[in-house]
């Protein structure tokens, strides 16, 4: 098989995920796009591992081992990411990432300003309680 086929497909999938990460507003959809980017990298790793396992002599099958590690790390990442998104949703009532602007500079007329200044107080208390 021509090596350019999997390489081009993985480049296109990576750029699709890049567009999703930059353009989506819901935090969970951003996480989905991150999964697409990780899968593009996995396809590249597998394709080059199969290519090198025939072309070179001793490759330790590093591409496939790294692919398995990436899959496991992606599972951990999606668990932690969803926990964070749910905590933010519980405190703020929204999961749209462009409404979470409390750390932005000079956000005097932001729409979430009043709610943000209120809900930072229970947020701090919660941090103390869990610590």
């Amino acid at each position: 098989m021509h090596l350019a086929y999997p390489a081009v497909l993985s480049a296109l999938l990576f750029c699709t995920g890049l567009y999703g990460v930059l353009a989506r507003r819901n935090a969970i959809l951003v996480l989905m796009s991150v999964e697409l980017m990780l899968n593009a990298v996995n396809l590249n790793l597998v394709a080059f591992d199969v290519y090198l396992s025939k072309a070179a002599r001793d490759t330790l099958h590093s591409g496939q081992a790294l692919t398995l590690f990436t899959i496991a790390i992606a599972a951990a990442e999606i668990g932690i990411g969803l926990a964070i998104v749910l905590a933010v949703y519980r405190n703020r009532g929204t999961s749209a990432i462009d409404r979470l602007r409390d750390a932005a500079e000079g956000h005097g007329d932001d729409s979430d300003d009043s709610a943000g200044s209120d809900s930072t107080v229970p947020g701090a208390e919660k941090a103390e309680a869990t610590a």
Binding site: H2, L3, A4, L18, Y19
Partner: peptide
């Protein structure tokens, strides 16, 4: 950004692996 990245990546990848085949 995505279209520019896709164009650059596809161009480089196709140019680099034009003569490489996977032995299946």
């Amino acid at each position: 950004v995505a279209v520019a990245a896709a164009a650059a990546l596809v161009w480089v990848v196709v140019d680099a692996f034009r003569t490489t085949w996977i032995d299946l």
